[in-house]
């Protein structure tokens, strides 16, 4: 659990604060009835990850670039960059989503895992992959739709 949070917030001290807050929150809310909750394990991870994500998104709120800046950055990033065929994550063999994830191109899987595991924003993923912001946003949206279709 601590490793998951450190990966998102990038700081051990802050991560320990978040684990502390998450566990106290889970403890206090365990008795509340919620028919829409996943398994207990999923719930523990969910509460903790979202505290971590709220922390990094709130901290970066002020540096969110406006649309003009985003367009300029996009123009600087090559639309013709070589397609990245390498997976950045050793994702196979972890869950039931494997089969559907396997149908996505590696670059699109990389987008999903840089978001889910690293807690990267759209902009951070665009910078990491050297792809335009709009492309990354569209890839993620389409990947989620493809996963939904594959699962149905």
């Amino acid at each position: 659990m601590l490793g998951v949070v450190i990966r998102i917030v990038g700081d051990r001290g802050i991560a320990e604060d978040i684990i502390h807050d998450a566990f106290v929150s889970i403890w206090n809310k365990a008795h509340t009835f919620d028919a829409q909750r996943g398994s207990g394990k999923t719930w523990i991870f969910s509460v903790t990850r979202h505290l971590a994500l709220n922390h990094v998104r709130t901290r970066h709120r002020e540096v969110t670039v406006d649309d003009d800046t985003a367009e300029r950055l996009d123009a600087e990033r090559s639309q013709e960059a070589a397609t990245d065929t390498q997976d950045h994550f050793d994702w196979l063999g972890h869950g039931e989503l494997d089969r559907c994830l396997g149908q996505l191109a590696p670059e699109r899987r990389n987008c999903l895992f840089h978001a889910y595991v690293d807690g990267f924003s759209h902009q951070e993923i665009a910078a990491r992959l050297d792809r335009p912001l709009g492309t990354v946003k569209a890839w993620i949206k389409r990947s989620l739709a493809a996963l939904r279709e594959c699962l149905s």
């Binding site: 601590l2 490793g3 998951v4 450190i6 990966r7 051990r12 991560a15 996943g38 398994s39 394990k41 999923t42 991870f45 969910s46 990850r49 994550f89 050793d90 994702w91 972890h94 869950g95 039931e96 989503l97 895992f113 889910y116 595991v117 996963l147 699962l151």
Partner: peptide
């Protein structure tokens, strides 16, 4: 949450 949770294992344990 349920579908993605197993992939939290991609972060190294600390």
């Amino acid at each position: 949450e349920s579908r993605l949770q197993p992939y939290t294992a991609l972060a190294e344990p600390v």
